[in-house]
């Protein structure tokens, strides 16, 4: 099985009528993803290449049975778009929008937690989620992926996840699902949520975790791995040589007051039994080795 996104998922795109939304929405559809609706209150009743546009997510859900929302709207309206999606009743929200103010992220996170505890938010500022051979929501290039498992990927960074997909595919190793949790300070979904899902997924036999500087999500993931994960984990952390106090591209990628260094994260993951790659191109080899150790290659 894939995690969270399958061939049966029905996707509504908030932002489908925009240039980016149309490009990625149609691209996801061309891959085979069931993109069933778009949302734009001013263009309800029209369509984008045959995909009907509704005024609200709730309308789209009622008419099409959509259970996933792909949010690709400007930052100033993205927080409200997430809340609209949750209220509309989808179970999974994938928000690729970057530059949502941190306080809005914190407010949205806690609002979902209180009012919509069963709704999962991926992102904001994430690359999306890809279950190769089944469905794709977001930016992830499917060209470098291979279906059938047995490896699950979870990453804060998009490009490093793509790199991992590529390295695995080059070794002939398939993937179950590649999950982007995003590079912002308050991600809706944590490494731990993804690790738990991969541990429970029968088709996933090994896990790749890609982190970066800033925050303590990787350290928390390491503790969770130690206590709960029996499948092999290969990890990579970006930003070993990043200077303190500087944001490295992602809003959440910053070493502040000595906290959130790559070194501390790598140490925690190594101590938890994960194999930590020195650079992203080592990921393929380390996964191959891990699969051999459990008799799968």
């Amino acid at each position: 099985m894939a995690v969270w996104l399958t061939e049966n998922s029905k996707v509504v795109v908030q932002g489908l009528t925009g240039k980016q939304g149309q490009f990625y929405g149609l691209r996801n559809k061309a891959y085979g993803t069931k993109v069933v609706a778009g949302v734009n209150p001013k263009k309800a009743g029209t369509d984008v290449e045959g995909i009907p546009i509704f005024a609200t997510v709730a309308d789209a859900v009622k008419a099409t049975g959509a259970d996933v929302s792909f949010i690709i709207v400007p930052a100033a309206i993205a927080a409200d778009a997430i809340l609209e999606a949750a209220e509309g009743g989808v179970g999974l929200i994938v928000c690729v929008t970057e530059h949502i103010p941190a306080h809005d992220q914190a407010r949205v996170y806690n609002t979902l937690k209180h009012q919509y505890p069963n709704t999962r938010l991926l992102g904001p500022n994430c690359a999306g989620i890809l279950s190769p051979g089944r469905a794709n929501v977001g930016f992830t290039p499917t060209e470098v992926s291979k279906g059938g498992g047995p490896v699950g990927i979870v990453s804060r960074s998009g490009t490093l996840a793509y790199q991992a997909l590529y390295e695995l595919t080059a070794e002939g190793i398939g993937q179950t699902t590649c999950i982007g949790i995003g590079g912002d300070p308050v991600p809706g979904t944590s490494f731990i949520d993804a690790l738990k899902a991969f541990q429970e997924d029968d088709e996933t036999q090994a896990i790749v975790l890609i982190g970066e500087i800033g925050g303590s999500a990787e350290e928390e993931a390491a503790e969770y791995i130690k206590a709960n994960i029996t499948k092999p984990v290969v990890a990579y952390i970006g930003g070993v040589s990043a200077p303190p106090g500087k944001k490295m591209g992602h809003a959440g990628a910053i070493v502040s007051r000595g906290k959130g260094t790559a070194q501390a994260k790598m140490k925690a993951l190594t101590e938890a039994g994960a194999k930590v790659a020195n650079n992203p191109t080592e990921i393929g080899g380390l996964v191959l080795q891990a699969l051999k150790e459990i008799g799968l290659r």
């Binding site: 490009t159 490093l160 790199q163 590079g183 970006g238 930003g239 591209g249 992602h250 992203p280």
Partner: peptide, 8 residues
Amino acid sequence: NGAGLAMS
């Protein structure tokens, strides 16, 4: 291309 790859 990409913040993660640039950091890396």
